[in-house]
Design a protein around this nucleic acid. Structure first.
Lengths: 197, 197
DNA sequence: ATCTCATGAGACCGATCGGTATCACTCAGG
DNA sequence: CCTGAGTGATACCGATCGGTCTCATGAGAT
């Protein structure tokens, strides 16, 4: 989960990586607008100047951060695909489990995409476009899995599962439904069992 | 929906009301941090000074805004309760329809609670506590309705419906699922039909 | 007519914002 | 040994932030 991986946080990584790590930590914990570039530079043990040598603007850094997060999600789902190549149901459950497992952390931080959506009301903002493209891809993947899983109405089922995944993250964030992870898993399972024996 | 009701927007309302109307409009459209107090005062056709005579801080104004929004939701659900006093299923569907009807607007603005959640990472913030209390109340209402509706596992059903409602709002906001409103209604209906004949 | 009190107008405060300029230093490749 | 690119530190820029202060005005109540 930590982009620095097992590496200790001593300044052995190049500045660009340290900046992205710091941005990941601060943006997801505090929000985009709440975090200044100076704070990111400080936490990356570097300076604002170094930050602006690698990223044209703060917005560009935000965009790159979201690009990496989206790639992480996509990579995880791709891994599920190779792990269960001919079992769409297992893939869908794997996706649900992936989200459910992140819920305890999410209860403190919230989903980066959903949170950023709130801070980027301008739909033409590049980072916003990135989010929408990622969500669209995720929906396509789910619809495809539902089709291959033989569900009667794949678009409807994919929409339902998407609603459940997003809603579970929001509900976990405001802490009203506990344990959200277990609930999410059981519910998605029920959705799949309902129409595919 | 507009707090000013049918009143024209000429400055016949007292300043406090105009300020709250302006805050509602700007906060829900742009986000909390993106909107400065000066912009709110301008749109309310008044001054910052007048704003600070009625609200101790910007945070206090945010809190009052969310309190009003929460009260509006609660009032709508109460109306459903008096309209269908002995029909829990109709009440739940009414709630779903209420959310679904707001989705076209939400696709441009997003749910105020979900968005504010992203901008208030501090769980001790009064406005944040207000959101969590409101969501908890909503969940309690849903659980109660599920119980009275004879659903086999009310907490689980209430959680599922909550996930669906929140998720539909997020999905509508990023625009990936169309038409989200119709989908949401059909899905909630299916959830109710599934276990209660 | 006068007194009062909320309002409107606008200057002002310190702090912080995103972003830039300057300069000293380090260290790898020739 | 030298050079040059990438880096760290710091000062600085104009703009805006949340919040305060002063003062003139205007309408309502007595």
């Amino acid at each position: 989960m930590d982009r620095a991986g097992r590496q200790s946080r001593v300044a052995t990584l190049p500045p660009r990586e340290r900046i992205l790590d710091a941005a990941e930590e601060l943006f997801s914990r505090e929000g985009i607008r709440a975090v200044g570039v100076q704070a990111i530079a400080d936490r990356a043990a570097t300076t604002k100047m170094a930050l602006y040598r690698h990223f044209a603007t703060k917005d560009a850094l935000v965009e790159e951060w979201l690009r990496i997060v989206a790639a992480d999600y996509t990579a995880a789902f791709d891994r599920l695909e190779t792990a269960h190549p001919d079992d769409p149901r297992a893939q869908i459950l794997g996706i649900a489990r992936f989200i459910a497992d992140g819920l305890p952390g999410i209860s403190h931080r919230g989903c980066p995409f959903i949170n950023s959506l709130a801070e980027l009301p301008d739909r033409t903002h590049p980072a916003r476009r990135l989010i929408e493209a990622h969500k669209a891809g995720q929906l396509r993947r789910l619809t495809d899995l539902c089709t291959r899983g033989g569900l009667p109405d794949p678009p409807e089922a994919a929409a339902e599962i998407t609603f459940l995944l997003e809603g579970a993250q929001v509900s976990a964030q405001n802490g009203s439904i506990e344990p959200a992870g277990g609930r999410l898993l059981r519910i998605v399972e029920a959705v799949l069992d309902r129409s595919a024996p």
